[in-house]
């Protein structure tokens, strides 16, 4: 599904942040990416999602057999790539439910499916809200405006649950959540698990991985994946820190 080969990316000022990433994610898999602050995890997510401001100087990315890097950000999204933001963005005055429906309909149009009217949408969203234990009032507020940290993260998961992406990248969606919220987020993620979908979770904590069992765990350090393994790697990282991983590499 996702094939990242020797990916190098730098900022406009020339600073290289990603320094040769290799990553292969198959449909049905869940991968976890861990690594110290500033190692380039969010940058990898941003480059995959097509955010401007990064220059890919080397390497390639193929997504569902297509060259991902030539696609504009919105097309990537409509092709089923979803990014849950580490810091979700506020859009004042835009009703959260309207935003979600607009996004869903943009994607449905792209797939040649009929758009959902407000009533049909409401029925579907209500079921998801229940699953994620989100109050309906969250839908009536402006997108992320005045949301608590945890509410923002849940809202990202709600968006994922509604958009049903092929590839979801969750950037620290577990950070700043209380234990109950963490379980709910995990439930949302597990709900999405299916043989056609892949999920990449970026996290600092092994705790999330107790609920969302990853197929592979990778350690990102200074713009490179220095170690990969199964779930046991996450446990070990938690115990010994990234220093040990670096030595081992």
């Amino acid at each position: 599904m996702l094939e990242v080969t020797n990916l190098h990316a730098r900022l406009n000022d020339g600073r290289e942040i990603l320094r040769g990433i290799d990553l292969s994610v198959k449909a049905g898999e869940v991968h976890a990416i861990m690594g110290p602050n500033g190692s380039g995890k969010s940058t990898l997510a941003a480059v995959l999602a097509g955010r401007e401001g990064y220059e890919v100087s080397e390497g390639s990315v193929s997504y569902l057999g297509r060259d991902l890097l030539v696609m504009p950000a919105d097309e990537r999204a409509r092709e089923g790539l979803f990014l849950a933001f580490q810091y979700p963005i506020e859009i004042p005055g835009v009703n959260n439910m309207y935003f979600l429906r607009t996004a869903l309909n943009a994607q449905r149009r792209h797939r040649g499916e009929p758009e959902l009217d407000a009533g049909q949408f409401l029925r579907i969203v209500r079921a998801r809200l229940k699953l994620l234990d989100i109050g309906e009032d969250l839908l009536q507020r402006a997108v992320n405006v005045g949301f608590s940290g945890g509410e923002k993260k849940r809202n990202e998961i709600l968006q994922m649950a509604m958009l049903e992406p092929r590839l979801a990248i969750l950037d620290e969606t577990d950070s700043g959540l209380d234990i109950d919220a963490l379980k709910l987020v995990a439930r949302g993620v597990n709900e999405q698990r299916s043989p056609e979908r892949a999920i990449v979770v970026i996290t600092h904590y092994q705790r999330l991985l107790d609920y969302v069992e990853p197929d592979r765990v990778h350690v990102l350090q200074r713009g490179r994946i220095i170690q990969s393994g199964d779930k046991a790697l996450a446990v070990e990282l938690e115990r010994r820190g990234y220093g040990a991983a670096e030595e081992a590499a």
């Binding site: 999602a49 097509g50 955010r51 401007e52 401001g53 504009p72 950000a73 919105d74 990537r76 999204a77 409509r78 979803f82 990014l83 933001f85 979700p88 963005i89 506020e90 859009i91 004042p92 005055g93 835009v94 935003f99 607009t102 996004a103 943009a106 994607q107 792209h110 402006a142 997108v143 968006q159 958009l163």
Partner: peptide, 27 residues
């Protein structure tokens, strides 16, 4: 740029994203 990217990441075209943000601004 962040607002635009957020909207586009959800599948909106740049023009739809601007229109959405502007409508929010005028609400």
């Amino acid at each position: 740029e962040e607002q635009l990217f957020y909207c586009r990441q959800r599948g909106l075209t740049t023009e739809d994203a601007i229109s959405l943000i502007v409508n929010g601004f005028c609400r």
